[in-house]
Amino acid sequence: MSERITIKQVPLEELVITPGSACQGCGAALAARLAFKALGPNTIRHSIPACPDNVTRTPTSGGEFEAGGDHVTGTWRALKALGREDVQVVGFYGDGGVYDIGFQSISGAAIRNENVFIICKNNEAYMNTGGQVSGATPQFAMTTTTPVGPMSRGKPHSRKNTPMIFAMHGVPYVATASVAFPTDLIAKVQYGKGIRGFKFLDILSPCPTGWRFDPSKTIEVARLAVQTGFWPLYEIIDGRKFRLNYKPRELKPVAEYLKLQGRFRHLSEQEIEEIQRSVTEYWERLLKLDEIGEILI
C-alpha cells in the first residue's frame, strides 16, 4: 500500500508545461501536474484525444482514442525488447477513453499484466467534445446528451464501477484519488511507479465548464466529493487487499456536494435522497472491506 507523505515531500520539479489549453480551474490540468511530479522525467506519456491537451516535458506517444491500452502495450513491449525497462510507460487518459471507447484495450493490457500505468483524469463526461455523457457520468447528471426536460431527468443510469472492474482483473495496483488530496494522490503514483505490472489510478478531476460551477471552487468541489463519500479514496492490491485512505467519523451530506454544481441543479429532494441512499449504502460496503482489509471474492 502507498505510504503517507507530507506536503514537504512533494517533488518540486514541474513536468507539465504551462500554460496549456485548460480552462480556468481545470481539475484535469491539476491532476496532470501532480501525477507527473511523481512520475518524473524518465517517462513516456501516452495521450489520446481528450481535454485539456496536457503538455509535459516528456516524450509523448499515443494516438487513437479507442486504443489507449494498446499504445502503452506496444511501447512497453518494445522497451522490453530493447532492454530499456527503466522507462515508465504511462497512459494519461480521460474517462471516455478509459471507461468507454478504450475499455477493451485497457482490459487487454490489464489481463496481460503489461508493465504500464494507466491514469484516468476523470471529469465524468466527454469534455473535449463539449460535455456529452460517458460511462463515468453519475446518475441524474445533466450533460449535453442527457439534458433535463419534461421527459428527462439527466443521465438515467448509474456510472460504471471501473476501478473495481480493473481490480477484478487481479492486477497489482488499483487506486482512486482526488485533486483535493494531493499528497494522497502523489503517494499513490509513487507507489504504483515502483510496482512491475499493470497499475490503474482513477483521479476525480472536477471540470468547472462541464459541471457548471465557479472555477474558483474546483478544490472545494473535489474535496466534498470525497468528504461526502461520493468519490471514496481507496487502493487495492492484487485485486484483494483493500484499504480506504480517507475515513471521516461521519460523512457530510451528499447534498452539499451536489448543490455546488449546475449539472445537478434540477434535482428534486427525492432524487437527492435517492443519491444519498446509494452513496451511504456503497460507503458501508467499502467500510466492511476496509475492516477485513480484503475483497472476499
Binding site: D70, T75, Q104, G108, R112
Partner: peptide
C-alpha cells in the same frame, strides 16, 4: 520476440505502431 496476443486487430495494429515508434522491428 515479444509476441502480444491482443484483444482484436485494431489492437494489434495500435500495438505494433507504438512499438515501432520506440524502435522495435514489428
Amino acid at each position: 520476440c515479444e509476441l502480444v496476443n491482443a484483444e482484436g486487430e485494431l489492437a494489434t495494429q495500435a500495438i505494433v505502431k507504438a512499438a515501432s515508434r520506440v524502435g522495435a522491428r514489428t
